[in-house]
Each structure stands twice: as structure tokens, then as C-alpha cells.
Amino acid sequence: MNLAPYMAYFKKSFLNRSAYRFDHIMSIFSNCLRMFIFWEIYKALYGGRQEIDGVTMSMVTTNFVLSMGLDAVFYINDYFLPDKIGNGSITTELLRPMSFKGRMIAENMGNAVFNLLFRFAPAFVVACLLIGILPPASPLMLVLFVVSAVLGYGVLWTISFAVQMTAFWLLNVWSMTTIKNVFVNVLSGTMIPLWFMPDWMEGVLKFTPFSSIYFTPIQIYLGQLEPGEIAIKCAIQLLWIGVIYVVGDILWKCGQKKLVVQGG
């Protein structure tokens, strides 16, 4: 497989992001602002207490700083395919001698690496200095956190991929994307740590992919999981990537079939 075109798209999306400097500076500022707002909200909610239900303020702070940081890195353009279907350029994309899905991944990875270096890192440093977060449970846990975070990105990417595929049938995917974003924001533990969810909700969440996106890596970072549990959680992440990708790929093939039968 020739990787050169994918590397070219990776480089292109990385460089495109760096071209918009004002947007880039403002996004660092907005990330810092979000973290401070959440910090103030949780400070008020804790009301000076050290812990609530065994969850310390430091754990909560670490959760939202890391999950918001990962959220900034994990930015995926949910309108990549819908826009191409809308303006008809999907036809020319399908004629290129390269995988369209590979191109989607390459462009998203370019964005992710840019966001990691220039959005997450500065905001993370500011948050560490001014808010303070817990250190990783051990160097090994930090490494496993990175591995799990990459898998979490894979889960989020496949969800976005599957949702984007609905554009073959829907004229406007805004509602689908919004529903997806609500589920991801609420059920992945970004806004409210999953420790505070009622037991029945935690039971339900076990059967959804959302907690695999941000919460699993953060649990690993905080050392809340035993080695066996880490292996199981990472296997669950891989399973979700596989299952959702297969669903998305079936939709992709059906969508292409629709295009060649009905035109587009």
C-alpha cells in the first residue's frame, strides 16, 4: 500500500490548521476558559469539602482537564463526507486511486496532531500551573493512558464515521451530528465525571462505547484500574472500534451502491 498520498493529506491538514493563527490562539484561550469555568463550578459544588462519594476534587479536576484536553485533540470534522455529498464532489473523490476512508483518517490525524501540539499542550500547561492536576499513577500508567487515549480516539472516529455515512440518505445530517455530540459530551464523562452517575446509568453505560472514549484513559491515568481491568477495558475499546467500523463500512458500501444506482 502506497502511504505517500495519505501522508500528503496528513501534512496538508496539519499545515492548513497552522495557517489560521488567530483561530488557533483563540482556541487555546477558549480551552483555558472552559477549564477555569469547570474548575469554578466544581469548587462551588464541592463547597470546600475534600471529597464527595469517595471522589476528591483533585480527581474531578484531573478528569475535566484531561478529558477537555483530549476533546481538543480529538476534533473530528463531522461534515467531511456530508459536505462532499452535498456539493457533488464525492463523485470525483471516488475516482481517485486511493482509499477515501484512508484519506478521512489521514486528514483527521493531521488535525489531531496539530491540536495535540498547539492546542492541548499549551492549555494543559496553563491548567497544570494554575489549577493543578494529579500526576499519573506511575510511568507505566502514563504509557497505558496514551495507548488507551489513542484507542479512545479510534472509538470517537468510528462513531463520527458511522454518523457521517447517514449523509447518503439524509439531506441534512445536522440533527444526527447534534445527537451524537450530546451523547458523547454527556455520556463520555467530559462534562460530568462518570463516578457521579447513578448506578443504573453506569450499568447502561457499560453497554455503550461512550465511556471508552475519555473515561477509560483517565481511569488508567489515575491508577483506578488493576492490570487485568486495563486489559479488559482496552479490549472493549478495540471491540467498539471494530463493531462501529463494521457498521460504518456497511453504510459506506450501501451509500456507494446508492450513488451508482441512483446517481449523485
Partner: peptide, 17 residues
């Protein structure tokens, strides 16, 4: 189609590549 995409060049008006 995948087997000859490299040999094919297409211009469709209004659908820029």
C-alpha cells in the same frame, strides 16, 4: 474501477477534483 483508476482521468463540469 479500483484496478484502473490510475489510467483514468475525468473532468465533470461543476464537480471539481
Amino acid at each position: 474501477k479500483g484496478r484502473y483508476k490510475r489510467d483514468l482521468s475525468v473532468f465533470l463540469v461543476g464537480k471539481s477534483a
